[in-house]
């Protein structure tokens, strides 16, 4: 009995460092940000720091700028995740084959993902440069365009170019995950199926895809969370421009906080993002459970 008590104290003692970390860098900021979102922390105002209840939230939700940046974030996430899933799956299928030099291919495919996002963004900035960018040079040599053109000067095009940069970086991540799942697949089922005369496409849709479904769902959840928080790319490539064409919600929160010094607005937007991601995750998990039950 006594040794059990000592044991419990020891456990408590051992987890103190971890507790400190969790409280210090996770819980404290989370709570503090939430409190900010309920106050009027406008650093430029003479009256700051009073509680204003849910005012900040109603204000943000009635602001059409907030809704359009949420819309843009959904567009960014939707398109980039779809492309990453399709390309990632195709690459994973290729890498799963027994080809010559496959080990080499598997290792270089990881490279884009290994590059830090900000480096990736800086690189794409040069690729897209209107005067001496590689993209213009390539398209000119292929005779696809007749003169150099700007890529980030119109809102819709700029958004899609940012998506391309994101897809280039994150597709390898998806591919590696799916490849890992494919490697665990039972080869004999495929052999049996092909003996039974199932075509390659039939095998893909009735065997591979259902088998990969849980992995794909997990990937979608992970990628949604990340895509919703896209920041580095926007920061380095467009800074939200042109004419707010790439002003995603997290960048807006950043501007509100650190440029306009409206800490409350920034905190409110951050919590809205968290709520949206939370809802999406719940939906995904429900879907995942349904799939498992079926």
């Amino acid at each position: 009995m006594q040794s059990g008590l000592r044991h419990r104290w020891f456990i408590l003692f051992s987890i103190i460092p971890a507790l400190l970390f969790v409280f210090g860098i996770v819980l404290y900021p989370l709570v503090q940000t939430f409190i900010y979102s309920l106050k009027n922390m406008d650093l430029l105002s003479d009256h700051q720091g009073q509680f204003v209840g849910l005012n900040n939230y109603t204000h943000a939700l009635m602001d059409s700028d907030v809704w359009s940046s949420i819309g843009r974030t959904f567009y960014f996430s939707g398109v980039s995740i779809t492309l990453e899933m399709i390309l990632g799956l195709l690459i994973a299928l290729l890498l799963n084959e027994k080809l010559r030099g496959i080990a080499f291919l598997r290792s270089i495919i990881i490279l884009p993902w290994a590059v830090p996002t900000i480096v990736n963004a800086a690189m794409w900035k040069w690729i897209y440069h209107p005067e001496y960018g590689a993209l213009n040079g390539l398209l000119m040599q292929l005779h696809l365009i007749s003169e150099y053109r700007p890529w980030l000067s119109s809102p819709w095009l700029a958004m899609n170019m940012v998506i391309v940069a994101d897809v280039w970086k994150m597709t390898p991540f998806v591919a590696v995950f799916l490849l890992a799942a494919l490697q665990m697949n039972n080869k004999s089922i495929y052999e049996a199926a092909s003996i039974d005369g199932a075509s390659i496409i039939r095998r893909f849709f009735t065997l591979t895809l259902p088998f990969l479904k849980p992995t794909i769902l997990v990937l979608i959840v992970m990628r949604t969370m990340e895509a919703f928080k896209v920041f580095d790319l926007i920061y380095a490539l467009t800074q939200g421009g042109p004419s707010n064409g790439t002003m995603v919600i997290i960048y807006k929160a950043f501007i509100e906080t650190f440029s306009n010094l409206q800490y409350s607005n920034g905190a409110t937007l951050s919590y809205l993002i968290a709520i949206i991601i939370g809802i999406l995750t719940i939906v995904y998990v429900k879907v995942l459970k349904l799939e498992e039950g079926a």
């Binding site: 005067e131 700007p150 980030l152 000067s153 119109s154 421009g241």
Partner: peptide
């Protein structure tokens, strides 16, 4: 005006001007 202007900062302007464009 250079159509890339909406994506240029001062340093890009310098690049374009200094390269004779």
């Amino acid at each position: 005006s250079n159509p890339g202007s909406p994506e240029y900062l001062e340093e890009d302007v310098r690049g374009v001007f200094s390269s004779g464009k």
